[in-house]
């Protein structure tokens, strides 16, 4: 099977309460495929963090998950403000999350590092005023 299975989720930036739903839906899809729970968990976590970031920091975006025979690829694309210093943003503990969101337990500055930790490769393309695209793969 060479054609990947592709799932696309519009991540709504206007409805903060729905943040994180796409990764739940994706998890349900993955559970129906013969994929080990550990892989499902890593994909779900990486996607969750990226999705939350798009809602909190970028006003929403699109998440695309492609399941290949040997890997799962997650692409998160937004047209938000972009990340000024990617290296700094990748550091554990760096966060610009606003206070109201911190109260809900976000804003520890652990999202991007957690995405890196849970995937086999990760790349960030970001331009100020244009947006951010994050691509991650998890090998099966």
């Amino acid at each position: 099977m060479s054609e990947p299975l592709v799932y696309t989720f519009a991540v709504d930036g206007d409805n903060f309460t729905s943040a994180g739903e796409a990764s739940v839906k994706m998890k349900k899809n993955l559970r129906m495929l013969a994929i080990s729970p550990d892989i499902i968990r890593r994909v779900a976590i990486a996607m969750y963090e990226g999705e939350i970031n798009m809602v909190i920091h970028a006003g929403g975006g699109v998440a695309t998950v492609s399941v290949y025979a040997d890997k799962i690829e997650i692409v998160l694309k937004d047209n938000g403000p972009g990340i000024a210093d990617v290296e700094l943003a990748m550091r554990e503990g760096f966060s610009t999350a606003p206070e109201t969101i911190r109260n809900l337990g976000f804003g520890a500055g652990m999202g991007l590092p957690n995405m890196k930790k849970n995937t086999d490769s990760m790349s960030i393309e970001s331009a100020l005023g244009v947006g951010t695209t994050i691509s991650m793969t998890v090998n099966l």
């Binding site: 409805n15 309460t17 729905s18 739940v24 976590i45």
Partner: peptide, 17 residues
């Protein structure tokens, strides 16, 4: 509870937006 909620969506229930 904090660790149980860690990777949950912000909310899964709301009325008509």
């Amino acid at each position: 509870l904090r660790s149980l909620r860690r990777y949950l969506p912000v909310s899964q229930n709301w009325g008509d937006l």
